Computed example of a mutant assay.
Amino acid sequence: MIDLDGLHVGGYSLGGFASCLDIPTFKVAVDIGICLDRVISRDLILITHAHVDHLGAIAQHVAQRGLRRMEPATYLVPPGIEDQVEELLRAWRGLDGGALAANVVSLAPGERFQVRQDLAIRPFRTRHRVVSQGYFFERTTKRLAEEFQGLPPDEIRDLRLAGTEVSVPVRSIDLAVTGDTRLDAVLENPEVAGAERLVLECTFFDDRIDVEEARHRGHVHIDEVAEAAAHFSGRALLLNHVSPRHARADARRIMAEKLPPELLERTRLMVGAED
């Protein structure tokens, strides 16, 4: 597991091969390009886009939950692909002969999916070669309303007992996950770049694929991250979706060479499995 300033992220991420991020704190996974045993129990899967390395194991996830007599999971998908995902599952039902029950739900930027009272999922727009989106994990807490601050505790208690609402909701983005995207979609949205914790795809690390080609393919290059370092103001940054061209040790070395020290200190790297 990778520690992002108190929030742990695991799973598997290798560009073009498979992506599945597990976030145990929220009991949610992002993408299902590989069906990890630890993710079978996740009732909610967020799909960033429909490339095979991000969606290809959905039928296996559905089937494994059925075999274990679990309730159907919910798969949140970008608007416009829900019918095709349903068609994919219908084809597998015909081939498999099983129920393969699943809830496929379209969720668009600007909409909110309530996971629990204090946690909501909110999509944001990304730019890839197909329809895509990232996801905010938005936490809601309460704090004492400004007009009651400074009052004695007993007086605040009495107000509460009298039915006065003395607290106001405070929303914060605990985590943002981009999925595959060009970096400009991130930099144009201050909520993404400034999230408390950000999981950002960074596929290419050397000149075999330069910045221009990375952008053409709808991906991020480490040189772009270094250039935009000042935009990443959160507590932790996780780079994932590294191309298989780069060995883990080489990617870490290049990251250390390219990123400014202040950002490097807050940055982690995910290459392959992180359990």
Rank of each mutant, 00 (worst) to 15 (best):
H246Y: 06
V186T: 02
A18M: 01
A29C: 14
V9Q: 09
P123G: 02
R157E: 12
V177G: 05
D53N: 15
I2D: 03
E191F: 10
H128L: 07
V28C: 00
Q117D: 13
R112E: 03
I222V: 12
I209T: 15
A176I: 06
N103I: 13
L175A: 12
F205I: 01
V52A: 02
L200C: 12
I23Q: 04
K27I: 01
L269R: 11
S172A: 13
T267G: 03
G33S: 05
G163P: 05
L55Q: 03
H49D: 15
R139E: 13
Y135H: 09
E147K: 14
G94K: 10
A63F: 15
V39H: 03
G80V: 04
Q60G: 08
L88W: 15
A273W: 14
L21Y: 13
T178P: 14
L95I: 12
H241Q: 13
D53M: 06
V211Y: 06
E147T: 10
H128A: 15
S172L: 04
G134Q: 01
A228P: 09
R245A: 09
E262M: 10
T25I: 01
R122T: 10
G11A: 04
S243I: 00
G98V: 15
E86Y: 08
S243A: 06
E82C: 07
E155R: 13
I2Y: 11
G10E: 02
G6Q: 12
E201A: 07
P72K: 03
A273L: 11
V242D: 08
T141I: 11
A162I: 04
A185L: 09
E274N: 09
T181D: 05
T164A: 08
G94S: 07
V271N: 02
A63Y: 15
H51N: 13
I58L: 14
G134T: 05
V130Q: 09
V62D: 00
G94F: 13
R253W: 11
L107R: 07
